[in-house]
């Protein structure tokens, strides 16, 4: 009984610490629903801290390829994220008409993009710090690195 309790405590502590570390930056949520024939339905939920960690395991050649393809957008993306971090709770774009709603905002240091239209729904929620980590890693693998 005693041994079991010690093992359970050790396991529990490890899981909690790992969970707390993984969840420290929140989660990335991507929900895409296209309401037409053959439309895709993507529902992704990933711990934000796991993404930069997982990128370390991506083969360097793939990282270089992605970095090369994104080379023009990278400085802009980096500048946007760096500046957006100064505005953790702000509305930037809101478009409403009778059946569509688009919203781009930051909330609690996370970038939130919502598109609600009759034929599709897109909801993206991603911590700005994660986007910054990802862009930094891509820049490190870029042609100029």
């Amino acid at each position: 009984m005693m041994l079991l309790a010690k093992a359970a405590l050790g396991l529990g502590t490890t899981i909690v610490l790992a969970g707390a570390y993984t969840m420290r930056e929140g989660v990335i949520r991507i929900d895409v629903d296209e309401y037409h024939a053959g439309g895709s339905h993507v529902h992704m939920w990933v711990p934000a801290a796991a993404v930069p960690m997982a990128m370390h395991f991506v083969p360097a050649e793939h990282m270089r390829h992605v970095s090369y393809q994104a080379r023009e957008a990278m400085p802009i993306l980096h500048a946007i994220v760096k500046e957006l971090k100064k505005y953790p709770d702000s509305e930037f774009v809101e478009v409403d008409d009778h059946d569509q709603h688009i919203r781009v905002r930051t909330h609690d240091g996370r970038l939130q993009i919502d598109v609600d239209a009759p034929d599709q729904k897109v909801h993206v929620l991603c911590p700005l710090s994660t986007i910054e980590d990802v862009t930094t890693q891509l820049e490190e693998h870029g042609p100029t690195a």
Partner: peptide, 10 residues
């Protein structure tokens, strides 16, 4: 359609 667009840029 009653469209409304709001853009706020620092």
């Amino acid at each position: 359609k009653g469209e409304t667009v709001r853009v706020n840029v620092p």
